[in-house]
Amino acid sequence: MKWQGRRKSDNLEDRRGMSSGGKTIVGGGIIGIVILLLNVFGGENAQMLTPILEQMNQGQSAPTEQRDLTAKEIEERDFVNAVLVDNEDVWTTIFNENNLTYKKPNLVLFTGAVATKCGNASSDSGPFYCPGDQKVYMDLSFFEELKTRFGAKGGDFATAYVIAHEIGHHVQTLLGTSAKMRQMQQGKSKAEANKLSVALELQADFYAGVWTHYNQKMNAILEDGDLDEALSAAHAVGDDAIQSKMQGHIVPESFTHGTSEQRKFWFLKGYKTGDIQQGNTFESIR
């Protein structure tokens, strides 16, 4: 991905290098594995975890120490900043085209554990968006695990796709889609509620594709292999792919994010059309 030369965003918070004084925030061990399995690309589901996370993290201390970032971490920060800036510019443009105002979210980089308005979480949760504070949270070690544990190709555009997906959840919050989805889930069976969650996640993939479409027009960002990196990441985090790797069989009624093929389809539809009006994933699940 061509990303150098971007302005500096005021909405990037780099909390890496901070120490919590030896205390561990929830997410490690078997709880972390369960959260990762059910909540890769946390999205709006982070809000559902809040009561559990808060209860299990009572008494945890805030970060007390900080070290200097390494040269690699600084380069990672600069890349994430560039992707965030491009998302700010693209979504401001799209909202303006639709006579709307885009409120920019913050993106928080952390290592190991982080406190949010959706509760405390660890890197095992995977990247997630918290609607309570309208921030995206990411531990960049997730992307190494995406390659080694789930078989994704990796690459910088895989990271860009994940960031764009999470900011897609912010777009859904601003448009009221997330709140409507939660209302629709009320009174539904778990299987039916899960279908609505899948639709929300697939729409975030679609928005990631729309962002790629616009960003290519505005900044000519794509290099050879970039789309393959995004599609490989989308395939790796499909519910069927994760369940097959983690438990050896799949349970479709438990899906919350969509299959590998669904995730790739909606990302590509967003990229090819660039039309935010064509992202009604909720109609597709009926």
Rank of each mutant, 00 (worst) to 15 (best):
F41R: 02
I163E: 01
M184A: 09
T64Q: 14
T101E: 11
N106P: 01
V83Y: 04
D10F: 03
W3D: 02
Y137W: 13
I74D: 08
H249Q: 14
T50F: 07
F157T: 02
T273E: 12
E88H: 05
S232V: 01
V114M: 10
G29C: 07
N11Y: 14
I35W: 09
S20F: 15
D156V: 10
L140Y: 03
K23D: 13
N81G: 07
G248I: 06
M48W: 08
T93I: 12
W3S: 04
H170D: 02
R7I: 13
G119P: 13
E201M: 10
L107S: 00
Y214Q: 15
I285S: 00
M18C: 06
V40E: 00
A230W: 02
A158V: 02
E76R: 14
K147T: 13
T256W: 01
P131Y: 04
N98G: 01
G155D: 05
Q186T: 09
A121E: 08
G22T: 08
L202I: 03
I285E: 00
S123Y: 15
G225E: 11
V251A: 11
D89T: 11
D86G: 10
D86Y: 04
S260G: 14
F265Y: 12
I30Q: 07
N11E: 11
V171Q: 01
P127Y: 02
P131Q: 09
K2Y: 11
F95I: 10
G225C: 11
C118R: 00
G32I: 01
L37H: 02
V237H: 01
P252T: 04
T259D: 06
I163W: 00
G21I: 04
P105G: 10
G270N: 05
M1V: 09
A158N: 00
P127C: 06
K2F: 12
D78M: 08
G5A: 05
S232P: 06
F79V: 06
L69K: 12
D224H: 11
G155C: 06
